[in-house]
Design a protein around this nucleic acid. Structure first.
Length: 426
RNA sequence: GGAGAGAUGGCCGAGUCGGCUGAAGGCGCUCGCCUGCUAAGCGAGUGUACUCCGAAAGGGGUACCGAGGGUUCGAAUCCCUCUCUCUCCGCCA
């Protein structure tokens, strides 16, 4: 959520931002509601002031055993008027709040204006695509031939867009989770957390998934709980409503969770393989930082995520999302795209974002500078470190061999009981 | 699932028959005084949001005692609903 005062003072900038994001929205209703709200507020507060004074007067009269009947009668009418105005005000504020909740974050000035992902500039590239003296296969062929990925049975058990891992495949997924968590905790200074995998509506609203994107979420029947679409939600909301001390910042958390997404509107996209699932595993990085440091923190967050790919020897590139591709809550986002030779393309494997105070305002996460009484909103950031399923995909495709086996990257072998290759018998 | 108890300011904790309680008291914290250091002591201050006035410093007003509704001229105090926490019983990985 943007700051109310900021929107009020910068209606034109906000409107321009909405056009840059390819979601033009008429700001006129906001301006009108704001004026109406302030007029009513002024009147109702004036009446309440009268009422408070009269109440004291009535109390005094009663104490002195004098008659307060006339005043009480008069106040009865004032109270009725207050009740009416309060009701009107409540309705306006509800509309107002809803409008404000639908406005996305202001992009950072360094974010390029562009219509869609084709306008995302590549900011760096690491490593090289491996050379093959045979036609590299897509991971679904590799995985099924090795007997480690089973989409048919997953479809039988649940439905489309689910996967069943067998043997070395399951072990590899688990190894990746442990490896990522270990790197981030021991080398990058993150604290590991294991949050609930279901969250309530307040938490979803705090990070910006609600109210706008409910159709992307899985909701429990009979409960106002949702399956987490990313660990960002439970982990960022850890400090919902809190005031942190300056000494507590920055705070770095890393969490493994499964992620559940309805993928509404993606029918026919990425129907094969592990790329787009209703359930996938992810290790997430979340930071709470002081405002003046948040763009440096974004750079180091990106590096933390990149480290995993580097350790695994996977070729990737980094792009900056342009205004038209930027997420609702984000002020700036880098996507890391890993090379997938089996599909001859780069695919997003991590998304690292600075939300500035957008989420902190919604979730009411503040901090206090030493010696100051005034609290300020923290800045929140998060990034995938990494999407585990897609990392497994990248390993299968990049480390495949002519005979259909797959080499286990050096860094993962300690987590795989020393296994060096995954062959048909594993 | 059954029975009961509770939710007040950064923390602890008081709020009697509804009125002068933004909220006693204590702790903590900040500033000043005092003290050769430390401890103690003395004085003052110490929430948030919105809104109005002001160039600003600052000042006025309104709201907030788990959340939402109700009764009333007036509610932290009475009534209803919900949420959460705790205790006991049952069940359970």
């Amino acid at each position: 959520m943007l700051d109310l005062k900021f929107v009020r003072d910068n209606v034109d900038r906000v409107a321009q931002m909405l056009r840059d994001r390819q979601m033009p929205l008429d700001m006129q209703p906001f301006v009108e509601l704001d004026g109406k709200r302030r007029n009513i507020l002024r009147e109702v507060e004036e009446l309440k002031h009268q009422r408070n004074q009269a109440s004291e007067e009535i109390a005094r009269l009663k104490r002195e055993k004098k008659d307060a009947g006339a005043l009480i009668e008069k106040m009865r009418q004032v109270s009725q008027r207050i009740k009416d105005l309060d009701q009107e005000l409540g309705a306006i504020e509800e509309q107002f709040r809803q409008f404000l909740m639908l406005i996305p974050n202001m992009p950072h000035p360094s974010v390029p204006v562009g219509a869609d992902e084709s306008a995302n500039p590549v900011v760096k590239t690491w490593g090289q695509a491996p050379a093959f003296d045979f036609e590299p296969k897509p991971h679904w062929d590799i995985g099924e031939q090795l007997g480690i990925l089973d989409f048919e049975r997953a479809a039988k058990i649940t439905g489309a867009r689910f996967a069943l891992y067998w043997g070395a495949g399951a072990a590899l997924e688990r190894a990746l989770i442990s490896f990522m968590l270990d790197v981030h905790t021991t080398r990058h200074g993150y604290t590991e957390v294991l949050p609930p995998f279901m969250v309530n509506r307040t938490a979803m609203t705090g990070t910006g998934q609600l109210p706008k994107f409910e159709e992307d979420l899985f909701k429990l029947e009979g409960w106002d709980y949702f399956l987490v679409p990313t660990a960002e939600v439970p982990v960022t909301n850890i400090h919902m409503g809190e005031v942190l001390e300056e000494d507590d910042l920055p705070r770095y958390y890393t969490a493994y969770t499964p992620c559940f997404r309805s993928e509404a509107g993606s029918y026919g996209k990425d129907t094969r393989g592990l790329i787009r699932q209703h359930q996938f595993n992810k290790v997430e990085l979340v930071k709470f930082v002081q405002p003046e440091t948040s763009y440096d923190e974004l750079e180091s967050l990106l590096q933390n995520a990149e480290t995993i790919l580097q350790e695994l020897g996977l070729h990737y590139r980094v792009v900056t999302l342009c205004t038209g591709d930027l997420g609702f809550s984000s002020a700036k986002t880098y996507d890391i795209e890993v090379w997938l030779p089996g599909q001859n393309t780069y695919r997003e494997i991590s998304s690292c974002s600075n939300f500035e105070d957008f989420q902190a305002r919604r979730a009411n996460i503040r901090f206090r500078r030493k010696g100051k009484k005034k609290t300020e909103l923290v800045h929140t950031l998060n990034g995938s470190g990494l999407a585990v399923g897609r990392t497994l995909v990248a390993i299968l495709e990049n480390y495949q061999q002519a005979d259909g086996s797959v080499i286990v990257p050096q860094a993962l072998r300690p987590y795989m009981r020393g296994m060096e290759t995954i062959g048909p018998r594993n």
